[in-house]
Design a protein around this nucleic acid. Structure first.
Lengths: 238, 238
DNA sequence: TTTCACTTCCCCTGAAATAGTGAGGTCTGA
DNA sequence: TCAGACCTCACTATTTCAGGGGAAGTGAAA
């Protein structure tokens, strides 16, 4: 493992001007950190994904086609946590998780992993992962030595991905009005229309108008969809 | 400005064992960075807020009582951005924003600010801000020199605040079965029961059983509530 | 082997959500 | 000052959902 120059890495990232270049950057990062794999993976609503990294194309294809995103303990675990996660600390006990893990090993994925959850506006969620094949002690030393660098790199990496994805940003919807936020929040908390109207001291008719205008603003097909969108875009917090 | 020891700062943060100690830490951070103010501010859904920092208690009181949270360009701006924000880049044109700014100056808030948005699971949103009174050049030098350190410190600071927040972590529920995940995901995507039943190739009756068992597992009051819980617990991704 | 979770299906009724339209008022920014 | 966004309420009609039952086959785990 060569000497790491964090400044240079972040400077290179900053200077990147095209989405395609991120693939070269991440390959260089893998080499700089001396690990088997390094992957950036942006998980988007509606199953859309952007990723780049050094996993073999075959494995990426399988991951997608098997819809492993839904059961991957790394994704699940990082989605619920704030700080980086060592794969060992995740729950691999479910059948589907073990099956995926076995299959991954066949495609050259190492037994050790360290993933950094990244969150942006409107519920953006991405993962930055270092993967390697080594024993626990060596991996503990690696993560201890580099977790801070990796957090920063993940941060800058996502910033760049954000920059290159104009379409994603445009998905942001108009902000909800205060009353709409109230209504959607209470719906998400499980209250019935009657309870909410009562609690907001408005009629159920009025309440319905808020819900419908929120649904319209969010481009949602129905109320539940609107709640889901408002939640994942961070417009309401339950 | 004394020599900054990032390692020591993060180690101290890591070693913190009580919420109250964060106030001392942030005061020490202000001194270490040699700025006028440093503030951490966790914005919660129901208007609940936790904050600590070196702003004068009077200003904090006014900020809360005037409900400036809703109009503060710093909050608004950071909520829509991913990378740290220099206050100069924000839109201070609205009357309420200028009024707030004038008032803030009277309470010792400096003209320069640098705020880092922090996001956690469940739409958590917090701000970490450095504030100072100086000219633009000096501030540009400061942010250039310290933005990376501040990002990391903000990250570790929020992690600690998270740790001390009792409500969140304790909410754990049984995992959903694959079929339940399918059903809940499709509901969250806005499809109707008929479409979902069709798409999963099951009867609507069967679909309903999945929804109800998911609702039961999540301890939800109704379907929308169940979707909201599944989303905020990261059990489904839409 | 037996229990347990998961999957699949069926009946029913009353409650809730959706859709369309109209019509006042306030408040704020250009 | 004036348009536009927001908040408030009303009417009626149709469609969909929720919640209450019950039943039965599979596969895995204890």
């Amino acid at each position: 493992m060569g000497k790491l120059d964090l400044d240079q890495i972040l400077k290179d990232l900053d200077a990147t001007r095209a989405l395609e270049d991120l693939q070269d950057i991440i390959t260089a990062l893998r080499d700089a950190f001396g690990v088997d794999h390094m992957v950036y993976h942006w998980v988007e609503s509606s199953g859309d994904q952007y990723g780049c990294g050094t996993y073999s194309p075959e494995w990426v294809e399988i991951y997608k086609s098997q819809n492993y995103l839904r059961t991957d303990p790394v994704v699940q675990g990082c989605y619920q946590r704030f700080h980086p996660v060592d794969w060992k600390r995740l729950d691999w006990s479910s059948r589907s998780a073990r099956k995926m893990h076995r299959q991954a090993m066949k495609y050259g994925i190492g037994n050790q992993g360290f993933s950094i959850p990244i969150r942006g506006p409107n519920g953006q969620f991405a993962l930055f992962t270092a993967n390697h094949n080594c024993d626990d002690d060596a991996w503990a030393r690696f993560t201890k030595a580099h977790s801070r660098d990796l957090i920063l790199i993940a941060h800058y990496f996502h910033r760049k991905a954000l920059e290159f994805e104009p379409g994603r940003q445009s998905e942001q919807s108009r902000a909800l009005s205060p009353r709409e936020v109230d209504a959607m929040t209470l719906i998400a908390m499980g209250y019935s229309r009657a309870q909410i109207a009562d609690s907001l001291s408005i009629s159920q008719n009025t309440l319905r108008v808020y819900i419908e205008s929120a649904r319209f603003k969010l481009g949602a097909l129905n109320t539940t969809h609107a709640v889901a969108r408002a939640l994942s875009r961070g417009l309401i917090i339950v």
